[in-house]
Design a protein around this nucleic acid. Sequence first.
DNA 1: TCTATTGTATTAGTTATATAGTACACTATT
DNA 2: AATAGTGTACTATATAACTAATACAATAGA
Lengths: 131, 131
Amino acid sequence: MIDFKLDPKSGVPFYRQIIDQIRYGIASGNFKVGEQLPTVRALAVDLKVNLNTVSKAYKELEIQNIIETQQGTGTFIGDIKLMIPETERRNKLEGIVNEFLTIASSYGFSKIELIEELNKRNGGSNEKSNK
Amino acid sequence: MIDFKLDPKSGVPFYRQIIDQIRYGIASGNFKVGEQLPTVRALAVDLKVNLNTVSKAYKELEIQNIIETQQGTGTFIGDIKLMIPETERRNKLEGIVNEFLTIASSYGFSKIELIEELNKRNGGSNEKSNK
DNA sequence: TCTATTGTATTAGTTATATAGTACACTATT
DNA sequence: AATAGTGTACTATATAACTAATACAATAGA
């Protein structure tokens, strides 16, 4: 379970802070597949925001295939690797790598530098080879 | 010289499209260090936008240390690698790699997958080892 | 110094974003 | 079917982002 926190002074919208914390929670293993997230009302009360703000975060996460919502039942963590078909997963990978390369090259970083930097990081969030 | 183009239907703000095209132009070698960019008025007329929109793009690029503006004289391409001190350059590299890893890990991609994908790209924009 | 050319600053209006208030709709349980 | 729980939809409002109109300021060259 995550201890949600919002920082009003950060300049980052509330709904985006919620998204980030859930995504980080999943990536770092604090959320298990199938686990139920707080209800929109519960989290809204907890964070002292409107339930629509929480709903907005959940909706975006559902579009990203990260969580599953069922009206009348609740919101649950989805299994990313199961839910996203392999082809779509490949496209996503290519997409974020493309974006990364565009940004990096505009700063004059070569591919070699990028890979060197990546290799310095040990562990990261999930080093498991999955499957 | 770049053939600037704006797409009003893209949803991307004009000033950001200008920024992207200049950055890409530099990364792909279409702009040489010291070369003068179009004046804010010239580019504004060319793109049929207000000169402030061009000015905004130039200002942001100057903050990023990518171009240099001199009131009364013009705007010029700066030498990124010369202008940005090595420590700052390292910080930038670490920053964008961190962001990349955060996004990637939240989608369940392992570091190995990322490096594999990076290695598939030959050339990219600038493969020169610079200096 | 005058003038043309350059970027800058101030102001305003339109549009998009973020959040909230409230009513609605679906689901499960009794 | 009644009810209590869930997410959803609609509407409103405040704020920020974007673009523009216009006036100002610095530079270079005649």
